[in-house]
Amino acid sequence: MQFTEFNSSNDLNENFAERVAGLLSAAIEKNGRASLVVSGGRTPLPFFQKLSQADIAWNKVAITLADERWVDKNHEASNTALVLNNLIQNKAADATFVELKTSEESAFGAEPSVEANLQKLSFPIDVLILGMGEDGHTASLFPCSEQIQQGLTSEEVCIAVQPTTAPHERMSLTLKSLLNSQQIFVHLVGESKKAVLDKALAGEQVSEMPIRAIVKQNNTPVEVVWAAK
């Protein structure tokens, strides 16, 4: 795992956007298309806005989320809305967005529909950007959920999850899908997140802190980008 510290979140966002745009452009040049998987929440929004202005062939980029709450896109908890309003804008408006949320009432049982949607992406994922919760979860692989072992071991592309410490059913890419990437980034801001990362690096039990399955493996390159504030 590579750890890169920035002086400020603004420096991080500018440098990170340039780095990701470069990787996507290289993938397009090599394969004719590129895939980008992002995470929701508030932390990546300024980064999304920077990336959306990158001068690359966005019409050849497919974007999806690492996980999504099972809510409509007009719901305040929708990560889809965050991506549409902050990343699929400006020059990136030409990108293809692949939604994880489908019309099914429940995430449980919707996995085949979501997996079919994800066929629009090219695997391995060219760039995967993850966040991390205070409990060490990443994507929607929550240590508190009954589905955690399945999420960590399943051969499937995605899995429905019901966390016990957070609201809403979720759809999440499985660990196997997350690791099926050319480059993984973990985007963190704040001293508290650095403390959680340090705790994760100091232990071994993956089901206790699922982020360990990302940062403590050696098959897919991982870089943590971090700023204190």
Rank of each mutant, 00 (worst) to 15 (best):
T43R: 04
T43I: 13
P44M: 05
P44N: 06
L45E: 10
F47A: 05
Q49W: 01
K50N: 06
A54I: 00
D55Q: 15
A57W: 00
W58Y: 06
W58R: 09
N59K: 13
N59C: 08
K60D: 00
V61I: 14
I63A: 12
L65Q: 04
E68C: 06
R69Y: 12
R69M: 06
R69F: 06
R69W: 05
W70K: 08
D72S: 13
K73T: 02
N74C: 05
N74A: 13
N74W: 04
H75N: 12
H75R: 07
E76L: 13
S78H: 02
S78G: 05
L82H: 08
V83M: 12
N85R: 09
N86T: 07
L87R: 14
I88V: 12
Q89F: 08
K91Q: 15
K91A: 14
A92T: 01
A92D: 02
A93Q: 14
D94P: 05
T96L: 15
F97V: 00
V98W: 04
E99H: 10
L100N: 10
T102F: 09
A107T: 00
F108A: 07
G109S: 03
G109I: 05
A110W: 02
A110Q: 06
A110L: 01
E111S: 12
E111A: 07
S113K: 15
S113F: 12
S113P: 02
V114A: 03
V114Y: 07
E115S: 15
N117P: 09
L118S: 13
L118V: 10
Q119F: 01
K120Q: 15
L121F: 07
S122H: 06
F123L: 14
I125H: 06
I125W: 05
D126F: 04
D126K: 01
I129M: 15
L130K: 14
L130C: 13
M132E: 06
M132W: 03
G133Y: 08
G136E: 01
G136Q: 05
G136P: 09
H137V: 03
A139C: 14
S140H: 09
L141Q: 07
P143C: 03
P143R: 08
P143F: 01
C144V: 05
S145W: 03
E146R: 13
Q147D: 10
Q147I: 03
Q150N: 10
G151S: 10
G151Y: 06
G151I: 00
G151K: 07
G151T: 00
G151A: 13
G151L: 02
G151N: 12
L152R: 08
T153C: 02
S154M: 01
E155S: 15
E156H: 14
C158T: 02
C158A: 14
I159P: 11
V161M: 10
Q162Y: 10
P163F: 09
P163N: 00
T165P: 02
